[in-house]
Design a protein around this nucleic acid. Sequence first.
DNA 1: TCTACTTAGTTGTAGCGTCAACCATTCCGA
DNA 2: TCGGAATGGTTGACGCTACAACTAAGTAGA
Lengths: 162, 162
Amino acid sequence: MISMNEDVWLSDVQQRAWVKFIAVVELLPGVLDSQLQHDADLTHFEYFTLAMLSEAPNRVFRMTELASATNSTLPRLSHVVSRLEKRGYIERAPCPEDRRATNAQLTEAGWEKVVATAPGHVATVRENVIDPLTSDDVADLDRIMGKMLVKLDPENRFRVQR
Amino acid sequence: MISMNEDVWLSDVQQRAWVKFIAVVELLPGVLDSQLQHDADLTHFEYFTLAMLSEAPNRVFRMTELASATNSTLPRLSHVVSRLEKRGYIERAPCPEDRRATNAQLTEAGWEKVVATAPGHVATVRENVIDPLTSDDVADLDRIMGKMLVKLDPENRFRVQR
DNA sequence: TCTACTTAGTTGTAGCGTCAACCATTCCGA
DNA sequence: TCGGAATGGTTGACGCTACAACTAAGTAGA
């Protein structure tokens, strides 16, 4: 587009990689969302929130921590937690140590929801992302995404192992 | 989560790659959107729509083709084109060959918008995606995303070179 | 040529995310 | 200890997307 000037646009090789990458970035969320919506009546973000809680000590997170772990803003998380609370998957409780803070606790029903939902979700991830790759590909993917994350998430809010 | 059973979840290596990858998939759209919103008052999808049109023969696409090229549904595209039309970047015209169809034509103002917006967008792509990678990484990224696309976009709606 | 089906596109509605405004609590310096 | 700033979180309004319903035009079979 515009010109192939290397200062303005990308080289052919870079361009081809970028076009494929952005296509995947656009397509993948839709695939994950439809499977979860269809099979569990959850958005991917809702599932991800429950999954993060399920891995936390005592299945509790403070809202700010949970927002960080899911890379969401606090308002977004607050809305989502409200919905999940209405459905009985999460309970809110004031944090004793800091009375400004709120703890989000995964309920038993929430835990069971994650357990019931995970296999289908994992199957979708396998089918679309992992299985098409060789083990060398997976290692390359890990390395490349790690490099991008340094730029995209310098504070490591997502708490990814680096 | 749940168990490390290989049939249900992923191996450690796969898990690490997946966690990083999904983090990038969540973070990248926000980065692209903020830059474009801030510098050009466009969403990434709006920019992408204009960019696809700018590369089309005569800068015209039928709505269905444009929806395919941008991987959007027709309703979504219709709304977006309506907005871009109000801003003078696109014009709609009935298609002479098939009177059901509508042609979306990039206007001169739309072309100039793309030309003015592209450098900042490309700089963002470079900074966050391309520059952190070696040329070997770029080649690996191209190969890996190509494999995923076979699953995610079997019809090649995105019309990516394979 | 009549009818039923398919294709192309638009519109309205409901739901989710962003942003700004707001309240409560805690921290910190004078 | 008092007042301002920073932190933690919620709420409401607005904008964008998905979904469903709808119109219009083309297609295919009897």
